[in-house]
């Protein structure tokens, strides 16, 4: 029974959320920690250094840091973003964002939960999944709108 997923209907849409029973919180995901680095970070290769930030705690984390951090936004997995290396191309390049999203609230809504605009999207629902909190989202939005 432990292994059965709970299937929740998020809306009447095609979006289905299946949470495994062993699922824990944000980055404390023990599974991911225990799992062999190479596998756990496959979509995020070698240079990921999760502890780099812990080593210099005084520097304030910027929106860019959050967007690029493989354990946080990891937006580069899918989007080309100026200044980021080895971007994926699953999503559109994030350019001309101020023009495309003159209303920051709309940009925030997209990043908070991309399923609202596209129920079957692969883009991670950063807000509802507890990956980025409100303050972090605002920082990311500020950074993205400079692109």
């Amino acid at each position: 029974m432990r292994k059965l997923f709970r299937i929740l209907f998020i809306s009447a849409s095609v979006s289905v959320l299946a949470l495994s029973a062993g699922f824990s919180s944000a980055y404390a995901a023990d599974d991911a920690k225990k799992a062999d680095e190479a596998k756990a970070t496959e979509a995020k290769p070698a240079d990921a250094k999760p502890d780099a930030k812990a080593a210099e705690p005084k520097k304030e984390v910027t929106g860019k840091d959050l967007a690029f951090d493989r354990a946080m936004g990891n937006c580069l997995a899918c989007h080309m973003i100026a200044g980021g290396e080895l971007p994926g191309n699953i999503g559109p390049p994030l350019v001309g964002m101020a023009a495309r999203f003159p209303d920051k609230a709309k940009l925030k809504a997209q990043i908070y939960d991309a399923r609202v605009a596209n129920p079957n999207t692969i883009m991670i629902p950063f807000g509802p999944m507890g990956i980025l909190n409100d303050e972090q989202l605002d920082k990311v939005v500020d950074f993205i709108s400079t692109l």
């Binding site: 995901a29 290769p45 971007p87 699953i90 991670i124 999944m129």
Partner: peptide, 25 residues
């Protein structure tokens, strides 16, 4: 089925986006 904190299905990566780059992969 979508699963995990990142809310992705096998199909998201290996059907809908096969042939695309996820980071360097």
């Amino acid at each position: 089925a979508k699963r995990g904190q990142l809310n992705m299905s096998c199909a998201d990566c290996h059907t809908s986006n096969a042939g695309k780059m996820i980071r360097a992969d």
